[in-house]
Structure formats: structure tokens, C-alpha cells
């Protein structure tokens, strides 16, 4: 079995937060005592985008890793918004290359849907390939979420500290 249990996810998430704290990477842990499936880790950061006219725009990006029950794997979701709180569309995100993704991969892997934990629209990376790949790492990796983020980085530029050992 390549999937992990919700308990394993929570355990891994806690260990991941310890690493993040150590490397000052500002991921935070959010637990729901009533519902283990609502546990997630989150990071927010400001990102800059310079348009053709060299004008700099400021955006805030939020990344959330939560447990996907159907696939039994961590799932990655994100949103990016401007200073008024308006979410960017997927096409805007893609065109600004805030995230480095090819057009085909982008649309086949990322979709906007209601977030199972946050109950608001988020971009969610489809987990169908995660399961297969995580299988290779489940017993060898020090932290599955770190490995998972390593899988995501070709799709999304996350500026992860090198100390994670990706």
C-alpha cells in the first residue's frame, strides 16, 4: 500500500513543522480536535510580479497541505490574491509565471474547486500521480511531506530552504 493513514499524515505534519521552524520557513500547523481530516499545514508569503511595463505588483500566496481521504496522500492547494483580497484566476497565475508550469501540465493537474477543509475555492493539485510516486519514498524518506513538496516544486516555485535536503 502506498497510501498513508490520517494519523500518519498528522504525525508527519507535526514533524514537518519542527523542520520548518528549525529552518524559519514559517509553515504553521492547524489541528482540528474533532475531525482529524481537517488537520493541515499552511504557509503564507508575499510574492512580487513585475509586468512588461516594469510595474511591480504585490500578491499574497497561501499554500495548504491537507490529507486527501480518497487517495490517502497529502494534497497541495493554494490561492493567490491581490491587495483587495480578489483571487487571481488560474490563467492569471499561469501567465504571470508566479509558478513555473507548462500550460498543458498546468491545466491537467491544477483545478479550482471547493476546498474540502477550507470550504472556499482553492486551486488544488490533482493527487492522482502523487500516490504512485510516494510509494517509492514511503519507507526511505525522513519526512513524507518534504518528499511531497519535492514533487510539487517542478510545478510550483515554492522557494523552499535548501536545508530540507530536497
Amino acid at each position: 500500500m502506498s497510501s498513508i493513514t490520517p494519523e500518519e499524515f498528522v504525525h508527519t505534519a507535526k514533524k514537518f513543522i519542527e523542520l520548518s521552524d528549525k529552518f524559519f520557513d514559517s509553515w504553521s500547523f492547524h489541528q482540528n480536535d474533532n475531525d482529524i481530516l481537517k488537520t493541515y499545514v499552511k504557509k503564507e508569503e508575499f510574492v512580487n510580479h513585475r509586468d512588461e511595463g516594469e510595474k511591480v505588483f504585490l500578491y499574497r500566496a497561501e499554500y495548504i497541505i491537507f490529507y486527501n481521504l480518497s487517495y490517502g496522500v497529502p494534497s497541495f492547494s493554494f490561492n493567490i490574491w491581490n491587495s483587495s483580497g480578489t483571487l487571481l484566476t488560474l490563467e492569471e497565475v499561469r501567465q504571470m509565471s508566479l509558478m513555473k508550469i507548462s500550460k498543458e501540465d498546468f491545466y491537467s493537474v491544477i483545478t479550482q474547486q471547493e476546498h474540502p477543509v477550507m470550504h472556499r475555492p482553492y486551486f488544488i493539485i490533482h493527487p492522482c500521480n502523487t500516490e504512485k510516486i510516494l510509494l517509492y519514498f514511503k519507507h526511505t524518506t525522513k519526512n513524507l511531506i518534504v518528499t511531497f513538496l519535492g514533487l510539487i516544486t517542478p510545478l510550483i516555485q515554492l522557494n523552499l530552504p535548501l536545508e530540507y535536503g530536497l
Partner: peptide
């Protein structure tokens, strides 16, 4: 300033884009 939140908050728009999503997928 103006925050136009309809795309992410208006339930009518959300229903429309979500059903479009099925076709796009």
C-alpha cells in the same frame, strides 16, 4: 478601492464555473 469578490464568493458564479469545470476536466 474596490474588491470584486464575485468570482470566489457569488454562489451563482461558483455554481457556473464549477459545472464548467466538469467539461473542462
Amino acid at each position: 478601492k474596490l474588491a470584486n469578490m464575485s468570482a470566489s464568493m457569488d454562489p451563482v458564479k461558483l455554481a457556473d464555473t464549477s459545472s464548467d469545470l466538469n467539461i473542462k476536466l
